[in-house]
Simulated assay, not measured.
Amino acid sequence: MSATKRGDYMPLADIQAKLIPQLAEARVNRVTLTGGEPFMHPALIEIVADFREAGMGVGVCTNATMVTDDQISQLASLGAHMNVSLDGFSAESHGKFRGRPEGFSETVEAVKQFGAVGILQGLLCTPNNLAEDDEYRQLCEFARDQGAKYVLMNPLGEMGRGANSSRKLRRPEEHMHYIRAITLPFVDDGLDMVHIRFPNDEKPLSGCEAGTIIYVFTKGEVAVCPYLVFAARTKVSRHPDTDFIIGNVWTDSDIADRLDAYKFHERWDLGANPTCGGCSMSKDCGKGCPAAVVAAGQRIGAVDTKQCPVVPHQPRRLPVVGVS
């Protein structure tokens, strides 16, 4: 769920009276607080405590530049866990990517503190052209040494945060192959390496978790997947975002019923195309990411061409605008 974005906050009273009860009714047993930056919310610790009191596990996705020693102590006592964004391993790369060179040392110090009290869950990394390739190996070494359970690497894409910067800052495919090669060995050190949408040459694609991992926006919209909503809001999308928003937690009192009724994989056939229909891997293939298909200007059911090893990558669909 998005706790804060661009200075807007989920009201604490509404979280307590509406959000938490509806998520509990929907059988949610774990939440991740994201943003924006969750530590901008003046009641973040109380929100974490309320979710924990409702029996839910709580994670926080943060850039770790605003957290205080007292907050770290309280989060540890509440049994929360922290997921920290670190997009390079130098002030020049991470700092420039995030817009604050001094942010690198702040984030590194906070990660060390999270690790020391046992609440560091993982590091979240967006490989980009501002960092040297070897920084990603150094980042994984740092994660391992601080006791992180995983490092998740997800390249810039053409939706959400990466929509305006992917062409300029996205790593070339040959670099992505190399980054995966130098970071995979950390699996032997007990670090779970998660490479999201790295170049794929041979494996069947993973499946989609839409409807299982839901998202609540600051303004209350409940999405079966945030990336599908971000993709639907791109200029080339052939889907309205309402295809993937089931209601609003602030105004609708039946969110659990709406989620149960949505049934993403019955509503949408991800392999509804001749290529998937005739592919020998189709039975074992999850058909990839429907959000990537939507962001490419296709209807759900088309091939995820940027990941599929069977078909060549296709050019992105451009809008046609009639002016006469």
Rank of each mutant, 00 (worst) to 15 (best):
A3S: 08
R6W: 11
D14E: 15
A17V: 10
L19Q: 10
P21I: 04
L23A: 05
L23N: 05
A24L: 08
P38I: 09
F39H: 11
L44F: 06
A49C: 09
D50R: 14
A54D: 06
M56E: 07
T62C: 08
T68S: 15
D69V: 06
Q74S: 09
G79P: 00
H81I: 03
N83T: 05
V84Y: 12
L86Q: 03
F89T: 07
S93D: 07
E102P: 03
E102F: 00
E109I: 00
V111E: 09
K112W: 07
Q113F: 01
F114S: 12
V117Q: 07
G118A: 05
G122I: 03
C125F: 09
N128H: 08
N128C: 07
D134R: 14
D134K: 12
A148T: 07
L152I: 05
P155T: 03
P155N: 02
G157P: 02
E158H: 14
R161Y: 11
L169R: 00
R170E: 10
E173G: 06
E174P: 02
I182H: 12
L184A: 11
H195W: 13
I196K: 08
I196Q: 10
F198T: 03
K203S: 15
S206G: 15
G207P: 01
G207F: 11
C208N: 09
E209V: 13
Y215S: 14
V216P: 07
F217P: 06
K219R: 13
K219C: 13
K219S: 14
K219P: 06
P226D: 13
Y227V: 11
V229S: 09
T234K: 11
T234Y: 04
K235D: 12
R238S: 01
T251N: 06
D252E: 04
D254I: 02
L259W: 03
A261L: 01
A261T: 00
K263L: 05
K263H: 13
K263D: 13
W268H: 13
D269A: 05
D269F: 05
D269L: 04
L270S: 04
G271A: 12
A272H: 06
T275V: 15
T275I: 15
G278I: 06
C285N: 03
C289P: 02
V294D: 03
V294F: 02
A295N: 00
A296S: 05
Q298V: 01
R299P: 00
I300H: 04
A302N: 04
D304Y: 02
V320N: 09
